[in-house]
């Protein structure tokens, strides 16, 4: 039996949840010994290459590519965890759900005080993914097994959750580790 394999990704998040993973500090060096990373922003593995025990997902889905990545994670991970408020409920990016996508694009690419736009068009090339009309939390796109609240969840909460999942224990976090800001 090899080491358990973990994959992580950031969809429509701010990377703060990934930073919180790194905030487990020197325990990260221990983690490197206990597990192997598959696809993750910290290495150059661009797509999941093997069956993973745990997938950690930061951010919800704001464009078509986010959906594809999330589906890749669901297909290849035994346990899939929404890490943080963006994955769990869309978070701050979902503030745009009350406004039409067109208005958001116009503001950024046509109306801003420093905009120089000779063509009068917003970015729309086939080389960039289509934006979704709304930002969706992960569980509205695929089944998620757990949700870790917080913006970001405290490093200790992520650590406790990982240790429990890797040991096949039920995920029961103490009250002090459940934070919502």
């Amino acid at each position: 039996m090899g080491k358990p394999i973990i994959a992580t990704t950031s969809l429509a998040g701010c990377f703060g949840c990934h930073m919180s993973i790194l905030d487990i500090d020197d325990r990260i060096l221990k983690l490197f010994e206990l597990i192997d990373f598959d696809r993750s922003p910290i290495n150059d593995i661009k797509h999941i290459s093997q069956r993973c025990a745990v997938g950690l997902v930061e951010g919800g889905c704001a464009n078509e590519e986010n959906v594809v990545v999330l589906q890749e994670f669901r297909q290849n991970c035994d346990v899939l965890v929404s890490v943080g408020d963006c994955a769990t409920m869309g978070g701050i990016p979902a503030l745009r759900n009350t406004i039409s996508l067109k208005e958001c694009l116009d503001e950024a690419y046509l109306n801003g005080p420093t905009v120089f736009n000779a063509t009068g068009k917003v970015p729309d090339s086939e080389d960039i993914p289509l934006l979704l009309n709304k930002v969706y939390p992960c569980h509205e796109v695929v089944k998620m097994d757990y949700h870790l609240p917080g913006c970001p969840p405290p490093a200790d909460a992520i650590w406790e959750a990982l240790v429990a999942l890797l040991n096949g224990k039920p995920l029961e976090l103490p009250y002090e580790l459940i934070k919502y800001d």
């Binding site: 704001a62 406004i99 801003g112 080389d127 960039i128």
Partner: peptide, 16 residues
């Protein structure tokens, strides 16, 4: 050769 940035959030508008 091009580097494309593939995400958009819309902060300028939705914080209004």
């Amino acid at each position: 050769a091009r580097l494309h940035i593939v995400e958009f959030r819309g902060f300028e508008r939705f914080i209004q």
